[in-house]
Amino acid sequence: MQVVLDGVGYAYGDLPVLDGVSFSVAEGETAALIGPSGCGKSTLLNLVGGLLQQQVGRVSTPGAPPAGCLNPLTFVFQDFALLPWRSVAGNVALALEHHGLGRKEREGRINEVLTLCGLADFADALPRQLSGGMRQRVGIARAIAVKPAVLLMDEPLSALDAQTRELLMEDLVAIWARERTTTLYVTHNLSEAVRLADKVVVLSRRPGRIKRVVEVPVPVFERHKLDHAAALQALQDELWGLIKTEAQVADREVQDV
């Protein structure tokens, strides 16, 4: 399944946050969305995920979802959004319970994703007992349990410390190697974008407009190799050059929204 945005605009009341955004994410592709804070990245993600009412332009998803897909557009949240009163397995189950799966299939799927995310030993633990990294692994396990057509990741690693972030990025790459899910990945961390995305969509300050779309020339699975380090660093610097001035302005802005 692809994601196609065509002239998408959005305003909170009188305050425009997105204006004429058009781009598409191809089947199996990972697109990172970067920009200074307040450029409407999360708004865009919520529009794609159907959590916000579309106003201007059109968001469409051509193509069929994969077999066994229960929830085509599936989020991974920055703050994990785990139910604190449910165990790890219970939190994953929440995404499956209302789909009328048999008990066996449901438990099968839960075990599969918990194992995939390295959570097999924590099935009965409560969220408060887990580290931040493990919590986000639960969030990711819950998302892939529904076999999504499109993963919508809203700064999934920004609540974690740097070391945990490294570990999770490796996990994400490994999961993508298996699932090849179309992914829209919102982040303000440029190294994450350069490390994980096939292409990077750079948005301008509010109202968010597309400033540039940059393809990352190195395949995802080879980026950890030292040969590519210089090229990737150069790309990251280029991206920083694109948004630095606006990030400075955004930083000095008085928030009243």
Binding site: L51, N71, T74, F77, A81
Partner: peptide, 13 residues
């Protein structure tokens, strides 16, 4: 609110 939005995003009634 984020828990409710999460539940909505997974299509719970």
């Amino acid at each position: 609110r984020n828990l409710i939005r999460m539940a909505q995003s997974f299509g719970l009634s």
